[in-house]
Design a protein around this nucleic acid. Structure first.
Lengths: 252, 252
DNA sequence: TCTCGTCCTTGATTTACGTCAAGGTAGTAC
DNA sequence: GTACTACCTTGACGTAAATCAAGGACGAGA
């Protein structure tokens, strides 16, 4: 695959390779779900001017680590990342998976230190948004300030969803909910809602959902036997969306 | 107890009854841990001018309910509240307890609807902070904008702590952690770190920690037998703080 | 091609916590 | 005082998921 650069004069610049880091906010196909949402085009240019794009992260490479100085938040442009904390006794708690268009790193604002680590699950490109610049720009652009408040608030409500999931739901329900969540987020990005490749391992899924690998694996087998999901290693095909909904919802 | 009003001319106005709702931010004894933190005194006056104080909530009275229109965030001035969501199958998930100086309601920003309900656990007074006013003021006062970003970020990191607790820790560890959290928050307010009255029921504690009432009760009994805690219904006395720390931390 | 390492699956067994059941205690109303 | 209610505690038992154990599948590298 050849990387197409925006300055080549190629007439393909508006649909560049997803890892192309010369892209700008104005022509990014994610701008409907990322920060620029609801900004006017000249505002987008201003936002664009503070954003830094660097070369893609390789699989397993860290974007930042717990207790690193907090300087920026990040928007995923391609690939996928996980955020995780290491508990006192050395185990890992995955706190979120991040797909293109989603923002991570906001947990670092409170103490000026990253509260979690972020690592690429596969080759991934991100936009770095220096926080002090974002603050200044927010003060000038009410819709940007509003949007960023909303993004943080969304992170809170999503965490609360996960809290509820962990505290009240069975293993089947947890895994079904995650599959639905990934499906929904895929369709927001105009990708298939019924067929996708999981970027994370079974261990990561378990660590996120508060389950062991074995349990996750057994749940997948069960879903396969019930013809709800077709599972081929990391390739997932949802055969029975209502059935999956049902499995996720029925609480108890 | 008589309620002293600020306009009585009484020389006690600077240390009024905790439920006195004529108080302002400038003389509120919580202003070191609430929103005004780090604001200059004339800035505090501006903040003060947008804040609405109303009469105290009675026990079990709602401050807002899930899906209510979002208009304001709230600072607790006295008493305690719980935030909770009702799951699809009608059960309750407590997502947080809020004590004086703490802010709640921020989960409503993302969709302009409150994502959870908030109810007084005992008689409680709150300051209502209309969000649109707060937004406008934030754009003018960088330190206020910063502080509010930090408060939201703190909510995120605290939720992530809870996620980890629910996903990795035993019943003993969860209850011990909650007792330590309450103890810490008490000492931030210059109250006893070792002796306090729980404003919430065992059911609430269970709903928060993902445990049943019976389990919570058994954990308290066990802690009492180990001389870590003295439990007399809702009156808690921490007899062995290092022992409690130990019980909370040892992740096994 | 074979080898090694990582990841995944499946089965047998254990266990922490949930469920069910009964009884105690404290606050409030009468 | 008694009665009612909400809340808490304790015990006996059941179960979902963890743990322990073994083996299979797949990809990377020689």
């Amino acid at each position: 695959m050849t990387i197409r650069l925006a300055d080549t004069g190629d007439d393909n610049v508006l649909t560049p390779c997803i890892h192309d880091y010369q892209l700008n906010c104005g022509n990014c196909r994610l701008n409907g779900i990322c920060l620029p949402l609801a900004l006017k085009s000249d505002d987008i240019e201003q936002l664009d001017s503070i954003i830094q794009r660097s070369k893609p992260l390789q699989k397993n490479q860290h974007l930042y680590r717990e207790d690193d100085d907090f300087k920026s938040v990040y928007a995923v442009r391609s690939g996928a990342l996980k955020a995780y904390k290491t508990t006192d006794d050395g185990r890992e708690q995955v706190t979120g998976f991040y797909f293109p268009g989603e923002i991570l790193g906001m947990d670092g604002i409170s103490n000026n230190l990253h509260a979690s680590s972020a690592k690429a699950l596969e080759t991934a490109a991100v936009c770095e948004i220096p926080f002090t610049s974002l603050e200044k720009l927010s003060a000038l652009m009410p819709s940007l300030q509003r949007h960023f408040f909303q993004l943080m608030s969304r992170e809170i409500t999503e965490d609360q969803q996960l809290i509820t999931l962990l505290s009240k739901n069975s293993a089947d329900e947890r895994v079904a909910s995650l599959m639905l969540s990934i499906s929904t987020r895929n369709s927001r990005r105009k990708l298939s809602a019924t067929q996708f490749r999981l970027p994370m391992s079974r261990v990561d899924i378990g660590n996120y959902l508060g389950l062991t690998v074995e349990t996750v694996s057994r749940v997948f087998s069960r879903m396969q036997k019930l013809d709800i999901l077709q599972v081929d290693n990391k390739e997932i095909k949802i055969l029975d969306p209502p059935g999956l909904q049902n499995m996720a919802n029925m609480g108890g």
